[in-house]
Amino acid sequence: MKNSIAALFLFLSSNVLFAQEEIDMATGLRSSGKIYVVVLVLLTIFAVLGLSLFLLDRRIKKLEK
């Protein structure tokens, strides 16, 4: 857990470094922390998708027997 927080911090700090040039990036959104909501939403969708694939797999397995 500690490692992952450190990794997250690293990600963030390197983003700030990158953002010092003039080109517009979504750093404002990220520094306010709200990009994490999007990441969580995507992960939720993906988790449900994966779970449904597993359930489908199991139903087919039952049919095969």
Binding site: L17, F18, A19, I23, L43, F46
Partner: peptide, 16 residues
Amino acid sequence: VASAIVGGLLGPVPVL
């Protein structure tokens, strides 16, 4: 893919 979603949205990218 899940880690690519996290790393892909939060990781550093070149500013182009």
